[in-house]
Write a protein that binds this DNA or RNA. Structure first.
Lengths: 188, 188
DNA sequence: ATCCTTTTTTGACATTTATCAATGTTTACT
DNA sequence: AGTAAACATTGATAAATGTCAAAAAAGGAT
């Protein structure tokens, strides 16, 4: 059960045997269809998800009703709507499946229970936080320093595979530009 | 010694007595002049700083030589160039004092030594990471959803005090717009 | 395979924001 | 206090990007 996830944990979490199996019992299988909304705006995001297969995105709605993608994640990544999950407050964004996906979920209370129980689990989480935070920092730097053309080129350079799995519409909304502008950057 | 910092830790870190004092011995006083560069681009950021007084910013250089402010921090906040500090690799950005500041610094090796020694210290750091990551997320959402006018208005609403302590030049570079554009937003 | 829906591309035009230049204002230093 | 340097404002213009509309292309369901 949770085989690929267990492999992932063995490689990244400094725990094994009974403790690891105990941790695994806190995760539940959850599948999602393409385009399925997993968490809606104004709901409290009560779970954190591990992606075994597929991909998710987090998006917000702009003043004119447009969707803007704040985050994307694929296989072997954790996702949740952090501001909502951590503070257990209503979300300002949506969590959506952008492919047929196989997920594992853990509830807020169980997640933090494991942090209290196992320092190794907290370290694992902390290292994950460090990494996603560095990614956020890079994303901020791209927004303040680069124009549309260079944001696209940069993304193409650093995440060529991800681009292939996203529609132009979603990629444009991730890069902070209109679909038309993205389409024009591509033909250069 | 480190009196205000000790108060801060007593309130936010679940440790006291000898252990707390032992932690404090790993921090060194450091003062900085206004505009002083504390860490230069291409250098490895070997320390994390706590701001007792004053303010710092992190900025990067755009393709046309402009400075873009990625981060600002004032009293009772920790700052470091995270991508460089965590991975001990050359920084792509500068860390600069924007006011006369009184800092406390801890080295990379001592910081992670304390994490290994005290689970409480790791928790303290983890909670800090959660908070700054949520702030980064909000900043990303502002960049993808808001135009220049609304980015300024939003900043005015959520960080009115910080704005007063930053020059227009730095504020504009923080909000991702030219000084002239910011100046025009203000007169509305 | 075919039809229908959705996505992507392209063009024309509008809007936002940047750039350059000039002037007025503040700040820092001696 | 006085001076030089840095900063802020304003106007004119240019460049980048958004919006709207239509055509072309791609993808899904039956």
């Amino acid at each position: 059960m949770h085989k690929s996830f267990k492999q992932y944990l063995i490689q990244n979490l400094n725990l094994s045997g009974e403790k690891l199996d105990y941790i695994l019992t806190h995760f539940e299988e959850k599948n999602s269809k393409k385009n399925e909304i997993i968490i809606s705006k104004n709901k409290i995001c009560s779970h954190l998800y591990f992606i075994k297969k597929g991909g998710l995105r987090i998006y917000c709605i702009g003043s004119n009703g447009q969707e803007w993608t704040r985050y994307v994640a694929f296989e072997n990544e954790f996702v949740t709507i952090m501001p909502s999950f951590i503070n257990q407050e209503p979300s300002t964004t949506y969590l959506q499946s952008i492919e047929i996906s196989e997920l594992l979920s853990i509830s807020f209370s169980n997640f933090y229970k494991l942090i209290d129980l196992f320092q190794e689990w907290e370290s694992f989480y902390r290292i994950n936080l460090e990494n996603i935070h560095i990614n956020s920092i890079k994303r901020i730097e791209e927004f303040i320093t680069l124009d549309a053309k260079h944001r696209y080129k940069n993304c193409l350079k650093h995440h060529p595979k991800l681009i292939q799995r996203m529609s132009n519409k979603i990629l444009a909304s991730y890069l902070g530009m209109s679909q038309e502008t993205l389409s024009r950057q591509k033909s250069k």
